[in-house]
């Protein structure tokens, strides 16, 4: 039997996240997020709470390099993501971060395994087998079938496929935006338990934006974002 090569360590030296003097502006120049200082140790779990429109998602987008920042630094270990051009930020996310969104946006025409292993499509050929193997392993762990269509899956199962998709490359940090928002209590609890167990087992950092008090209670630390400002 042929074994997939193990994934290369995603970025063991990623280190802590340190955000300093961060400002994100709207297209009209208005400041929509300002963070004086935020530090998250490698392997810690951080919850981000706050009212709708306060800037939680923008914070998440800024620390994963999806939005350009107007000022400040977003340092993951020695890498200042804010100073990198778009292609380099893409490459960094590809290498080091896993993302989960409230809207799972699965590809309905693909199987759960193909969805979970979708990042293999743009990975170097040598890594594709390992990504698929890990995606399959995660689906087994999360109790989701690998084959068939994703259409008949429940909301919780779909969100677990999305979690497996985020974890399939074994990223050093997982960023989640309202991952339990559309799930019932029981399903949400199971997803949080699965996600945190998988992350903690590998010493991975988790930063989750959520209105879900149960999820926040499971995190090491929780911060508030109000009117674009972080309150620790």
């Amino acid at each position: 039997m042929r074994h997939a090569r193990p994934l290369p360590a995603s970025d063991p030296a990623l280190g802590d996240l340190l955000v300093e003097g961060l400002e994100v502006h709207a297209p009209d120049g208005r400041t929509i997020l300002a963070v004086d200082r935020l530090q998250v140790s490698a392997g810690a779990t951080l919850g981000v709470q706050g009212p709708s429109g306060a800037g939680k998602s923008t914070l998440l987008h800024a620390i994963c390099g999806l939005v350009p920042v107007a000022a400040g630094a977003v340092r993951w270990g020695g890498t200042d993501l804010a100073a990198l051009p778009e292609a380099a930020r893409d490459a960094f996310r590809r290498r080091a971060l896993g993302l989960i969104f409230q809207d799972v946006l699965l590809l309905e025409e693909l199987s759960p395994l193909d969805n979970a292993a979708v990042s293999a499509a743009w990975a170097p050929r040598a890594e594709r087998g390992a990504i698929r193997a890990r995606a399959a392993e995660l689906l087994v762990r999360f109790g989701v079938p690998q084959s068939g269509s994703v259409g008949p899956l429940s909301g919780g199962e779909r969100q677990r496929v999305a979690a497996a998709r985020a974890l399939a490359r074994d990223p050093a940090a997982i960023l989640a935006d309202e991952p339990t928002a559309s799930l019932d209590r029981e399903t949400a609890d199971r997803l949080v338990a699965d996600l945190l167990a998988a992350a903690r087992a590998r010493g991975r950092t988790v930063i989750a934006v959520s209105h879900d008090p149960a999820m926040m209670a499971a995190m090491d630390r929780v911060i508030q974002v109000v009117d674009g400002r972080v309150r620790q």
Binding site: G98, L99, L107, S119, A121
Partner: peptide, 16 residues
């Protein structure tokens, strides 16, 4: 577009 955006957020290069 939203699915492509998600792939891009996951690090898929524009070229992909």
């Amino acid at each position: 577009a939203r699915r492509f955006a998600l792939l891009r957020a996951m690090g898929a290069p524009r070229r992909f």
